[in-house]
């Protein structure tokens, strides 16, 4: 069987019930999607199937014959980052980086489907994506920014509202 992976047709030899995540990582050596739980609980393996976000760990590859699969590698490169990728850098939305591929893919799908900068809508759309480092705020801020802006300064990170810096002690 065949899938179109990041725009390139790839032949798959793994058995049809093999989870897409394992096919990507072990057969095709495309490793941005992470095996965070392999049970649909964390979102780190999220990829786009025909433009819709899907947990690759729960997707049997046999159900994808002829489908277009997009992983984080297909969304932008270090020389040509997508708006969401730029926003994540500019808003300091990644700490350890392990949940980031799933977050960026899901955020891209949300915005591609016409998602707005409404923070509750973003929280709703990415519910089920676990991040243990950031506390989510900067991720939500990054996605909200990418809803209205396509270019971000990558040499500096965004000032954040609700933060005050005081110099010196009493």
């Amino acid at each position: 069987m065949n899938i179109t992976l990041n725009g390139v047709s790839r032949q798959i030899s793994s058995p049809p019930l093999t989870p897409l995540l394992r096919v990507l990582r072990n057969e095709l050596n495309v490793v941005s999607a992470k095996a965070g739980c392999e049970a649909g609980g964390c979102g780190a393996c999220t990829v786009l199937v025909d433009g819709r976000p899907q947990r690759s760990c729960l997707t049997a590859v046999g159900s994808l014959n002829g489908a277009a699969v997009t992983t984080l590698e297909g969304l932008g490169t270090s020389e040509n980052l997508s708006a969401v990728q730029q926003a994540f850098v500019h808003h300091y939305a990644a700490q350890c980086g392990f949940c980031t591929p799933g977050m960026v893919v899901a955020a891209t799908a949300y915005l591609d489907a016409g998602g707005s900068d409404d923070k509750e809508a973003i929280q709703e759309a990415l519910g089920g994506h676990v991040c243990r480092c950031t506390g989510y705020l900067k991720i939500v801020n990054a996605i909200a920014a990418a809803a209205t802006q396509s270019e971000f300064d990558l040499t500096i990170t965004a000032e954040e509202p609700n933060v005050v810096v005081k110099t010196g002690g009493r």
Partner: peptide
């Protein structure tokens, strides 16, 4: 034994956050 049965904070739990950074 998984993120569905161990309750760690999710995006929906994010409260309003206000931060004061003191540089002493």
């Amino acid at each position: 034994y998984g993120f569905g049965s161990y309750y760690s904070p999710g995006m929906e739990d994010l409260p309003e956050l206000e931060t004061i950074i003191i540089e002493n």
